[in-house]
Design a protein around this nucleic acid. Structure first.
Lengths: 151, 151
DNA sequence: ACGTCAAGGTTGATGCATCAACTAATCTGG
DNA sequence: CCAGATTAGTTGATGCATCAACCTTGACGT
């Protein structure tokens, strides 16, 4: 139960700083290019990537790993701005289904392009393939660790 | 200007998932152990680590790299909860100085212990020293990249 | 059937993050 | 010394994230 070592503390500090700054610039560029928040973006992409034209809230929630109230609030805001519509769900009258408006679908594609380009520009073009692989492995390792202790 | 390659897209997805989950569990454990948010924690630690007993808001802001309105709102909430006090600044009558209450100081130490232990448990104990070094290097590289294109 | 319980979703409240507008004090050039 | 520009900090508005309470509907054991 010792403290963090110096390299560990420095690594953590760098990671934290990077995490905040990176998500800051990505979010800002996305908003500047499309007017979407990252939350908007996640929802639009998740719905758009489905083959069917309408998706159950439940499926969306599982895919995004969001809490139900978070999704509900987010969908309300997106509906007000004309990005999606909501309709009743036939298989389960408790449920609801989400559909993209034309504008929503268009923005989803637009945003995807901008966002991927920004990830490439800020991240992938700066790292070697080995570093990208290392980042993936580190992330998967930590995810496993979290999964294990929270199950 | 090609798209992301498959390994790149997978690495990014893992990173994003890890980032969200990790900050989720860390924040939750901190809140459960101390009742503090991560924002509270950052401020308390930043103030507590200073040799002087009172710190200018300006210095705090620079150290944390926060926007001024963010700090102002946060300090207001923390003052209401009795974690800090604010007083006028003598060198510059526009400024204000922040001081920890006894309770704030105590919580800062308590929280530091819990937080570092959680970082060790979730992150450092799961990674090899090489992975920790790789994470630091990746983070520093990306930070440089962001600095360069945004200055 | 029916009573109970779980699940899908909404709502309201609160804290956090950001933007823009504002106040007041300091700095600076002439 | 003064007018204009900066700077420190506050405030209000809005969107996002989370928690708890709630409502409706479906599932299931008996």
């Amino acid at each position: 139960m010792a403290d963090l070592t110096d390299p560990q503390a420095l690594a953590w500090a760098s990671y934290q700083r990077m995490r905040v700054r990176l998500s800051g610039v990505l979010g800002r560029e996305l908003a500047a290019a499309t007017g979407l928040s990252e939350a908007d973006f996640e929802v639009l992409v998740a719905v758009n990537e489905r083959p069917d034209e309408s998706v159950r809230s439940l499926a969306l929630r599982c895919g995004l790993e969001w809490e139900k109230s978070r999704l509900s609030h987010q969908l309300r805001r997106m509906e007000q701005r004309g990005l999606i519509t909501r309709e009743a769900c036939e298989e389960d009258s408790r449920g609801s289904a989400v559909r993209l408006t034309p504008r929503g679908r268009e923005l989803a594609c637009e945003a995807r392009k901008h966002y991927d380009a920004a990830v490439k520009r800020y991240v992938m073009d700066s790292l070697t393939p080995e570093q990208v692989a290392a980042l993936a492995e580190i992330s998967d390792t930590l995810l496993d660790r979290i999964e294990i202790t929270h199950r």
